[in-house]
Amino acid sequence: MKSYRRFLPEVGMLLPAIILMVVFIFIPFFLSGYFSFTNERLMPRPIPTQWIGLRNYERILADSEFWMSVKNTLYFAIVVIPIQLSLALASAILLNSKLKFIAVFRGITILPILTPITVIVVIWAAIFQTPDGLLNGIYQWLTGSSDYIDWLGDEAIAMLSIVLLSIWASFPFQMLIYLAGLQEIPKDRYEAAEIDGFNKWQQFRYITFPGLRNTNIFVVIITTIGALSLFTQVNILTGGGPNGSTTTIIQYMFSNGFSSQKIGYASAVSVIFFIAVASLGLLQRRLMRNE
């Protein structure tokens, strides 16, 4: 008994965090697994909740709207990740060079990180405004015509508009991480390369890029997970439309679980989402370690 009492103070210090984690992370985590096999609803109803086995999963996999949301989310991720990361890396290299007013340029570039996402979305709603918004103004100026594009209302374009806004909103964050990675590469490597007659591209290819290996692993993982969780932009701007062309997995989970109150069904979606994100993280880590 006495030996247990010795641990009381340290356990007491640990307890608030443990209780909060159990209540708000571990219990919900297992509940979502459990609910996914039931027909649980958000609001209580006369018929009790029933265990329905795999029926939720069967229905989800048979729902074309679900597959549409998977397709859209993957499309978003595949388009956004390479553009966002190259823009982030390019601007990190630019802002790592010795320029006058470099602090000003850096300060400007991090502004999107400081702006709440809902404000960013609203500002871009004005830019996308059809037919007389800024983007259409630029489009008409470039093409010299008076045509306009319905940036959020055209099925083929809407997701690309979301991509553009998302890149603006998040590349500065990745840029900061690349900037820190660049500053950790020893300067003498570049000096040695200069003596050996390496040109700028060779320096990037043989020193900068390998030197950023760990940074790359981290940035690719967080960017991918962020892309798969796309929700806020879509929810405010299009609500998943037009014609489901911008529904994402989280938007699909939200509209089934919250708007239609089908907690059981939507929990099955969140289980699928969890498995996708977790296994992607594992796969990515393994791939990049073997490189």
């Binding site: 919900p28 979502s32 609910f35 919250f258 989402f273 969890f274 994100v277």
Partner: peptide, 21 residues
């Protein structure tokens, strides 16, 4: 605690919502 880092917050919101309601 470290394994919790792998759980995306979005996959927890529905049971959390049911619990808080």
């Amino acid at each position: 605690i470290i394994s919790v880092l792998a759980i995306p917050g979005e996959s927890l919101v529905l049971p959390q919502l049911l619990m808080v309601s």
